[in-house]
Amino acid sequence: MSDLPLIVFDVNETLLDIRTVEPVFKRVFQDKVDVRHWFANLVLYSLALTAARSYVPFTDIGAAVFKMLADTQGVRLERADSDELRQKFSTMPPYPEVPGALESLRNAGFRLFTLTNNLAEVQAHQLERAGIAGFFEGLFSVDSVNRFKPWPQTYDHVARELAVQPSQLCMVACHAWDTLGAVAAGWSAAFVRRADNELIGVGPQPQIIGSDLTDVAQQLIARYAARR
Results as ranks from 00 to 15, higher is better:
Ala173Ile: 00
Ile209Cys: 06
Ala173Gln: 05
Pro206Arg: 10
Arg194Val: 01
Ala176Phe: 02
Met171Val: 03
Pro204Leu: 12
Ala184Lys: 15
Asp196Tyr: 13
Ala185Ser: 15
Ala195Met: 10
Ala195Ser: 12
Gly201Trp: 06
Gly181Met: 06
Val192Tyr: 11
Gly186Thr: 13
Cys174Ala: 15
Gly181Tyr: 08
Ala190His: 05
Ser211Trp: 03
His175Ala: 02
Val183Tyr: 04
His175Asp: 03
Ala176Asn: 06
Ala190Met: 11
Trp177Gly: 02
Ala176Glu: 04
Asp178Met: 06
Asp178Glu: 10
Val202His: 14
Asp178Thr: 07
Ala185Tyr: 11
Glu198Trp: 08
Asn197Gln: 14
Leu180Asn: 12
Asn197Pro: 02
Glu198Pro: 04
Pro206Gln: 11
Pro204Val: 11
Pro206Asn: 12
Gly210Ser: 10
Ser188Leu: 03
Ile209Phe: 09
His175Thr: 02
Gly203Cys: 12
Ala185Lys: 08
Val183Leu: 10
Trp187Val: 04
Asn197Phe: 11
Ala184Trp: 14
Ile208Tyr: 02
Cys170Leu: 15
Pro204Glu: 13
Ala189Asn: 07
Ala176Pro: 05
Gly201Asp: 14
Ala189Lys: 02
Gly186Lys: 11
Gly201Pro: 04
Asn197Glu: 14
Asp212Lys: 07
Ala189Cys: 11
Leu199His: 03
Gln207Lys: 14
Gly181Arg: 09
Gln205Cys: 11
Ala182Trp: 03
Asp212Ser: 08
Gly210Trp: 05
Ala189Phe: 08
Ile209Glu: 09
Ile200Gln: 14
Thr179Phe: 01
Gly203Ala: 14
Cys170Ile: 13
Ala173Glu: 00
Val202Asp: 15
Arg194Met: 00
Ile209Pro: 01
Cys170Trp: 02
Trp177Glu: 04
Asp178Gly: 07
Met171Arg: 00
Val192Lys: 02
Asp178Cys: 10
Cys174Tyr: 06
Thr179Tyr: 00
Val172Cys: 07
Cys174Glu: 05
Thr179Val: 15
Val172Pro: 02
Cys170Val: 14
Asn197Cys: 09
Val183Gln: 00
Leu199Gly: 04
Ile200Arg: 15
Arg193Gly: 00
Asp178Ala: 08
Ile208Arg: 00
Asn197Ala: 07
Ile208Glu: 00
Gln205Leu: 14
Gly201Tyr: 09
Trp187Ser: 08
Ser188Pro: 02
Ile208Gln: 01
Gly181Ala: 05
Leu180Val: 05
Asp212Thr: 04
Trp177Thr: 04
Trp187Asn: 07
Ala195Tyr: 09
Val172Met: 07
Gln207Glu: 15
Ala176Arg: 03
Ile200Val: 11
Asp212Val: 00
Gly210Leu: 01
Glu198Asn: 07
Asn197Leu: 05
Phe191Val: 05
Asp196Thr: 12
Pro204His: 11
Cys174Pro: 00
Arg193Lys: 15
Ala195Glu: 15
Gly210His: 06
Ala189Glu: 00
Leu199Ser: 06
Pro206Cys: 10
Ala185Thr: 09
His175Ile: 01
Glu198Ser: 13
Ala176Ser: 11
Gln207Met: 14
Ala184Arg: 15
Ile209Gly: 01
Ser211Ile: 03
Val183Phe: 10
Trp187Thr: 04
Cys170Ala: 14
Leu180Lys: 13
Ala189Leu: 09
Gln205Arg: 14
Cys174Val: 12
